[in-house]
Amino acid sequence: MDVHFLALHEPYQSPEHPVPINATIVHAKTLLHAALPQPDAALIYRCLTEFPDRRPGCVVPLSTLTHELDGGAGWSQVGDWEAVVNGLVRLTRKRECDGMPLGLPTMAATLLGHGPTTRRPDTGSTT
């Protein structure tokens, strides 16, 4: 299935980008790359591609997978998502796979990092 994975990660500086990179989008098939921790990455691939109601072309954040895996309780049956995300960052930085590095604003990263039911916090502003 034509699905993309969005992973938030520790920011890094890159001379090609004017802002720190704190997120990366890759095609789900990238998770089958031999340089990633396997079988963990392949199991994440299955979570991305076999979940009912996925639409072709969608972007699935890591936080959505966590939500779908019973709020994270199911990660122990899937694998070490942190090792997989770190591997994806290494691959994309070395240009060993297609990936889209992103420098997300703090609010966007916060909302994406907390899952599909997160609401923007009330800032107390009346404007």
Rank of each mutant, 00 (worst) to 15 (best):
L69I: 01
H67Q: 05
A34N: 04
A34H: 08
P61H: 04
F5I: 04
T49G: 01
E10K: 12
H67N: 12
V59D: 10
L62W: 03
T30Y: 06
N22Y: 07
E82W: 04
E82H: 11
Q77Y: 10
L62Q: 13
D2N: 13
T123R: 13
T49E: 02
T64H: 07
A108S: 14
S76I: 09
E96I: 00
R93C: 01
A42Q: 10
R46K: 13
A108V: 14
H114Q: 13
R54Q: 09
V85K: 00
G113E: 03
V19C: 08
A41S: 15
A41R: 00
I21P: 02
L104R: 02
V84S: 00
L112N: 06
T110P: 00
D80S: 04
L104W: 08
P101F: 11
M1I: 02
A41L: 00
L104P: 05
T126D: 13
D53M: 07
P116T: 09
L36G: 07
G124I: 09
P56Q: 14
P20N: 04
G103E: 06
T127N: 07
V26N: 01
N86A: 15
A73H: 14
H33Y: 03
G99R: 14
W81E: 10
L8C: 14
P37H: 01
L43Q: 10
E68L: 14
L102Y: 05
A109K: 03
G103M: 14
A109Y: 01
Y12I: 11
A34V: 01
A83S: 15
G115E: 03
L65Y: 06
R90E: 12
P121Y: 07
Y45W: 10
S125P: 09
D2E: 15
C58A: 15
H4G: 03
D70Y: 09
R55W: 08
M1C: 10
D122V: 08
T30C: 12
H67R: 05
G115T: 09
A108Y: 08
H17V: 04
G115Y: 08
D40G: 10
V26F: 01
E96V: 06
I21R: 04
A41T: 04
H9D: 03
G72L: 02
H27E: 13
L48Y: 02
P121N: 12
T49N: 15
R95L: 08
L8Y: 06
D122K: 07
